[in-house]
Computed example of a mutant assay.
Amino acid sequence: MTDHWTVTVDKRVCVRTGLCAASAPEEFELDESGQGRARSETLPASETVLEVAESCPIEAIGIKHAKTGERIFPPES
């Protein structure tokens, strides 16, 4: 059974580069204002989703384990 992550994009800090949707169009899309968002509230855990979050220039993408709530990205500082 595949783990699932809760993936969020912080709209207060998203600068609308579109990198998330361009890099992983099956997992991310742009809303009507051009901000990124996950296509679903939970996504299967994958290296692709993690790489997209890591490549966001301002770390607007947050990932938590769907069942435990453990933060996956960004890491605790």
Rank of each mutant, 00 (worst) to 15 (best):
M1C: 15
T2F: 01
D3V: 06
D3F: 08
D3A: 15
D3I: 10
H4T: 14
T6H: 09
V7Q: 01
T8A: 13
D10W: 09
D10I: 00
D10F: 07
K11R: 10
K11H: 10
V13R: 01
C14A: 04
C14S: 08
R16A: 14
T17G: 02
T17F: 08
G18E: 13
G18N: 03
L19R: 06
L19P: 01
C20I: 08
C20F: 10
A22S: 12
S23Y: 11
A24T: 12
E26L: 13
F28R: 11
E29P: 03
E29V: 04
L30M: 12
L30F: 02
D31T: 00
E32F: 10
E32C: 03
S33A: 11
S33C: 04
R37L: 10
R37Y: 14
R37A: 05
E41Y: 13
E41V: 11
A45R: 15
A45C: 05
S46A: 01
S46L: 06
E47M: 11
V49W: 03
E51G: 11
V52F: 08
V52W: 10
V52S: 00
A53N: 03
A53W: 09
E54R: 14
S55T: 12
S55Y: 07
P57A: 05
I58P: 00
E59L: 11
E59G: 12
A60S: 14
I61Y: 00
G62N: 09
H65S: 14
A66C: 01
A66T: 01
K67A: 15
K67D: 00
T68G: 03
T68A: 03
G69M: 04
E70P: 07
R71E: 13
R71S: 12
I72F: 01
F73I: 06
P75Q: 06
E76H: 13
E76A: 15
